[in-house]
Design a protein around this nucleic acid. Sequence first.
DNA 1: TTCCAACCTGGAGCGCGCTCCAGGTCAAGC
DNA 2: GCTTGACCTGGAGCGCGCTCCAGGTTGGAA
Lengths: 125, 125
Amino acid sequence: MIGYSPSETARLSGFSLDTLRYYEKIGLLSGVGRTSGGRRVFTDDDLGWLGLFRCLRDTGMPIAQMCRYAELAREGEHTARERQELLERHAERVEEQMALLRRQYDHLRDKIRYYQGVAEGVRAR
Amino acid sequence: MIGYSPSETARLSGFSLDTLRYYEKIGLLSGVGRTSGGRRVFTDDDLGWLGLFRCLRDTGMPIAQMCRYAELAREGEHTARERQELLERHAERVEEQMALLRRQYDHLRDKIRYYQGVAEGVRAR
DNA sequence: TTCCAACCTGGAGCGCGCTCCAGGTCAAGC
DNA sequence: GCTTGACCTGGAGCGCGCTCCAGGTTGGAA
């Protein structure tokens, strides 16, 4: 189990140093190790969590809900069911989000096709 | 060409009254009509614009860019090309956004499947 | 005529998710 | 030992996109 410096972790996770500190401050990331001098040392496990947070953030989960998830995980195995449900509800919202995005993307493409039509009309005349 | 009251417009567009006023204030929506008493009267054209704004917002376009688009449209036909390019660049970003969302959704589904495995006896984080 | 709900304006406030800053500490290389 | 850059903490600030508020006006129904 190797340790990663803050800047390495930032690079590997794609989160900024400030965001890493922020996530720890609000209790999203907990139990981050320190050197004798007080500097953070992140583990592969921490990187695993950060990967999950990246996934959840990219799919639009609010931070408060990620905190809830992390808290449940800390409580132990008996919360597995609840965590699963939380993720499933989120996945459903993501499905809706994807459907909306696709619909609006199609509208956007229609609009662009309209501009292409205008361009051809001008050329025809 | 009928006119719509603010509350009707809010209902039809899905934007709140405050948001309609805000969009006018920042110059996104311009030339909104008034009654003699100073109340807003929205037209079908305004609703068309609001529909476009809804599409652009839902696909993540920043308001500043929508303002830019609206401004170009006000300048006349000779900006059509630039408007088209603006929309095309946006559409490309939306494609990336959709691809990312799909990728992260798949990760999320993996994670959920993992929990389903736990229910069958495997150990989870 | 009176009522009251819908509307007006200008401007302050908010929730989110960071991001930046001041003022200090730590540790690797010269 | 000294320099330098990465890191520390607590807390303030920011950008976005609204949202709310105070205090006043309008206009259709009873």
